[in-house]
Computed example of a mutant assay.
Amino acid sequence: MQTQLLAEPAAPALSTKPHYAILDGLRGVAALTVVAFHLFEAHATSHLDQRINHGYLAVDFFFLLSGFVIGYAYDDRWEQMTLREFVKIRLIRLQPLVVLGMVVGAALYYFQDSPLWPGISTVPGWLVLVVMLIGCTLLPVPLSMDIRGWHEMHPLNGPGWSLFYEYVANLLYALGARKLSNEALSVLVALTGAALIHFAVTSATGDVIGGWSLDREQLRVGFTRMLFPFFGGLLLCRVARLGRVQNAFGLCSLLLLLVLAFPRVGGPDHLWQNGLYDSLSIILVFPLIVWLGASGQVTGKVAARVCKFFGDISYPLYITHYPFIYTYTSWVSTHKPSWQQALPVALLTFVAAVALAYAALKLYDEPVRRWLRGRFLAAR
């Protein structure tokens, strides 16, 4: 439940600006990695032995990518766009799949009886429906209605927490941050970066994992993880001079996978070292990856199709895959297979998540957004 996904295309649909196809492709690379990370997580005993160990950093990468793309798409549109129109655009882009993700989560909850959490045999159906309806608004569910016992804001679809912070970041941008000068924004980024480093190296677990619970400490984690990368991405968009990078998609994908899959740093006796790795990855490496991706060009039909497909399924995959992970985790906790024994089921779960994401995109998300744009944004 440690990840969040940027849902904004790399340039607005009505814009004549160049489209950052490579950034779209990187969203997909990270989304696919997130699914694998969560599958491995079902077999881990702690943060120390988790495979694809730093997969949770994908959320921070997506926040940074989101800030970059929001700035690119909207910074120069405010003379023709009102706050209300901006909110409409963002809701139409994000909310339909938020609703679908909660519905999928409620439907699969039936199959998730497990020693790890209460299941449908002990939780009333009406309560599951109420939690689903609250989740469809993306408002956090109070702890008194935590039907899974994991202290999640959205116990039917855990990744909803990161979309909650995505909305908060968008509102902060629209209400004030968009007006900041580059100098003032630089100060904000420096302060939030220092806060991120302090949190990471002093964290009790030696990492930046967290943010999905509605309590004081976890809210601190969520805001700390969101503020630097989002506004760092916005600053990067404003001040970076793009170059010309050959084979940028392959290079950026490799760098991103290396960061996310890198083994745990420091071990149990030196937790701060892993916290330092986390914070430096977010502050230094992720901006470099985004700059390289924005500086590259997609050449060839195959590469263009891969980037488009990855970008298209990235958000649907992120927001609908976790109910499958709950179900898979429930199966693992009940049957206790080794990783080798579980591999066929894990692969089936992975394929099912990708298939659902593509079906959700084509059969639901694109038609619904098309209708909503025609209904509420026709003038634009």
Rank of each mutant, 00 (worst) to 15 (best):
L377P: 11
L377F: 11
A303H: 02
L133R: 09
I319W: 14
G243H: 12
T82V: 05
L260C: 09
M81I: 06
F262P: 09
F40I: 01
A379K: 14
Q297T: 06
D75W: 10
G28S: 09
W331S: 07
L65Q: 10
A342T: 00
P268M: 14
L347R: 10
Y364M: 14
P124C: 07
V345I: 09
L347I: 14
W212G: 02
V245D: 02
S46H: 07
L23E: 02
I22G: 01
A346G: 13
N53D: 05
H47V: 07
F199E: 06
K301S: 01
V208R: 04
H54Q: 15
H270V: 04
L288D: 00
Y277R: 08
V285G: 02
W291G: 00
A355V: 14
G233A: 05
L288M: 14
L234K: 03
T82Y: 12
Y322G: 00
L171D: 08
V345H: 13
N182F: 08
V104T: 04
G125S: 14
G206T: 01
V201C: 12
S162V: 04
K301D: 00
E79N: 14
H151K: 15
Y358K: 11
G293R: 02
P124G: 04
L255A: 12
G67A: 10
F37R: 04
S186A: 14
G275E: 08
L255T: 00
S338V: 01
R225A: 04
V285R: 12
C237K: 12
Q297M: 11
H47K: 13
M1R: 01
F228P: 05
S15H: 10
Y326R: 12
F228L: 13
D207E: 12
P118A: 06
D312G: 00
S314W: 03
S186C: 04
L127Y: 08
I120W: 15
P323C: 05
A240E: 11
D207V: 00
Q2F: 15
A107D: 04
T137C: 05
A194V: 12
Y364I: 09
L108G: 03
W126T: 05
L6Y: 05
F111K: 13
I313C: 02
A106W: 06
A13L: 14
L138R: 03
S162L: 10
L236T: 05
K179S: 08
F376Y: 15
L258R: 04
L156Q: 08
Y56K: 03
A36I: 14
T299M: 02
L138M: 14
S144V: 07
F231P: 03
L57F: 11
L361C: 08
T122F: 12
A294R: 04
A195R: 11
S295W: 08
P159A: 02
T45Y: 09
H154G: 07
M102R: 02
G222Y: 08
S213P: 07
M81A: 01
Q112I: 00
S144T: 11
D269W: 09
L256P: 06
S295T: 00
N182H: 10
P344K: 09
V285N: 06
R373G: 05
P118K: 13
A42R: 13
V130R: 15
L5V: 06
I52K: 01
L100V: 11
Q218N: 15
A190C: 15
V99N: 07
Q4G: 11
G250T: 01
